[in-house]
Write a protein that binds this DNA or RNA. Structure first.
Length: 465
RNA sequence: GCCCUCAUCGUCUAUCGGUUAGGACAGGGGAUUCUCAAUCCUCAAAGCGGGGUUCAACUCCCCGUGGGGGCACCA
């Protein structure tokens, strides 16, 4: 069998969202699984709605997700190829050429200044309730699609449709098919919302005498609250939003793979190489899937937890850098001593659900001017004699060994034992004095990272009354 | 309204005629613990309805019902 060629063909008319990303992902997976070619084609035939900004977002999002394209617009290491240009706005000559073929074959006519594609078959008029007007339906030999995911899909009726607008610009159905022919696309993997278009496309392929590609219509992603499919305006829809929030792309990719596909067993978290090995079209589900941000968050945490120390620190720094001047903690963290920054990050890594928690979680490490949470204060000072505990702790830590968490823990335990108290009698007030909150990394690690001077200063400065 | 399509726990899903219907997320309980998480154990939770086919149907067929998509000089 000849080489698989698939394409992802977004139009830069809106922000890049999760459904598009998954379509791109499934195409990419299939190309990688089969050793085929992944083509990126920009469908920018609607001049009025296109924007360069949206185009940049497409490139940036695909790159961030790691969905490298073999052919397409050249961006970084991606792109190039022998079938270009890959933006439809630059392929007008080709569409004219193909239009002539259709005209020569007598398959077009003009109406209202636009050029229409003429279907073959028996015609009859019917009132369309949706459009509130009479339309001409064409009953022809059934267009049969042997869908790789859904099986046999048949459609017996269609309508003639516009292929070139009255302003001279060709329309989606037409350019989509022409480019698939010209770029020798073998498999069309797209959202189920295109299923009803497919008969039109099949008829165009046949009109050109071109081989019809294999189709695979993947189920849609439904919004998590309320009815309907996910759209650009829904919570959690935009890819760049995840990037901004510091979600790990590998977690998002893994999560997306599981929305409509599974390896056939219980495995969920898998390296992408393994997914590529196992992915295939017949394994894709037929039913729509509801987006679940909780599961995504869990996947993200799982990936975060297993990052190596170096990698975690690198990503944390990257995240803070992106926040830049907008965030006070980010500014201070980036300016901090790198070794200290690293220690703070590694202390926090096991406790986080996502990088976006980092600024709030680590703020007090980078400044002495941190707020004290009122509720936490009330809770921490409610029991026992916190003022006494604070004094005792300060005295004990003044001469303690700060080299390791266990050394600090030992010091506090010895102190507690001497007074028939427990570690837990010192922990709340110490945590409050050191961080201003009642949640955070282990107190001993916190002390070790802050160092004796800062710890003693904060404990000494803290006023219980 | 017409056309297409889908249907297992709240959610994502496994099962491809014979299982105590399995896993994951979320939820309840417990263990662990210096807080909060994480982790471990545990509980609760599903075959849309009705007809067939078959010795046997979650699984195959039909009809309902419900969900989703489409019905542009958008893509």
């Amino acid at each position: 069998m000849s080489q698989v060629r698939v394409r992802f063909a977004p139009s830069p008319t809106g922000f890049f969202h999760i459904g598009s990303a998954r379509t791109a992902l499934f195409n990419w997976l299939y190309a990688r699984h089969t050793g085929g070619v992944f083509v990126l084609r920009i469908e920018d035939t609607d001049a009025a709605r296109n924007s360069e900004e949206f185009l940049r977002v497409i490139y940036a999002s695909l790159t961030w997700l790691g969905l490298n394209w073999d052919e397409g617009p050249t961006v970084g290491v991606c792109g190039g190829g022998a079938f270009g240009p890959y933006r439809q706005s630059e392929r007008a000559h080709l569409y004219r050429e193909y239009l002539e073929k259709l005209k020569a074959a007598g398959r077009t006519y003009e109406k209202d200044g636009a050029i229409w594609f003429k279907l073959l078959g028996e015609r009859h008029e019917v009132f369309d309730e949706h459009r509130k007007k009479t339309v001409v339906k064409v009953k022809n030999a059934p267009a049969v699609i042997d869908d790789r995911i859904r099986g046999r899909v048949e459609r017996t009726e269609d309508e003639d449709f516009v292929i070139v607008r009255s302003d001279g610009n060709p329309v989606f159905h037409f350019v989509n098919v022409v480019d698939d022919i010209a770029m020798q696309i073998t498999h069309v993997i797209r959202g189920e919302d295109h299923l009803s278009n497919t008969s039109k496309h099949v008829e165009l392929f046949q009109a050109f005498g071109a081989p019809v590609p294999a189709y695979a219509h993947i189920p849609l992603i439904l919004k998590q609250n309320g009815p309907g499919k996910m759209s650009k305006r829904d919570q959690g829809a935009l890819i760049e939003e995840y990037q901004r929030r510091g979600l790990l792309p590998e977690a998002l990719v893994n999560f997306l793979c599981l929305l409509g596909w599974n390896p056939g067993d219980d495995r969920e978290k898998m390296p992408i190489a393994e997914i590529i090995r196992l992915f295939d079209l017949p394994g894709v589900n037929q039913s729509n899937a509801r987006f679940d941000e909780k599961k995504l968050a869990h996947m993200n945490m799982a990936y975060l937890l297993e990052l190596s120390a170096d990698e975690f620190v690198r990503r944390a720094r990257e995240f803070f850098t992106r926040l830049g001047g907008e965030n006070a903690t980010a500014k201070l963290a980036l300016a901090a001593d790198p070794a200290f920054f690293r220690a703070v990050m590694l202390l926090s890594q096991p406790k986080l659900k996502g990088l976006e928690e980092l600024p709030a979680y680590t703020a007090y490490f980078f400044t002495e001017d941190f707020p004290v949470d009122a509720k936490a204060r009330e809770k921490a000072l409610a029991k026992g004699d916190p003022a006494a505990r604070l004094r005792e702790l300060t005295a004990a830590l003044a001469t303690a060994d700060f080299a390791s968490d266990t050394a600090i823990e030992e010091t506090i335990k010895v102190l507690a034992a001497a007074r028939s108290l427990a570690f837990g009698d010192y922990q709340p007030v110490a945590r409050l004095a050191l961080s201003g909150t009642n949640v955070g990394p282990p107190i001993t690690g916190m002390m070790r990272v802050l160092g004796r001077d800062r710890v003693l200063a904060r404990l000494g400065r803290f006023v219980v009354g």
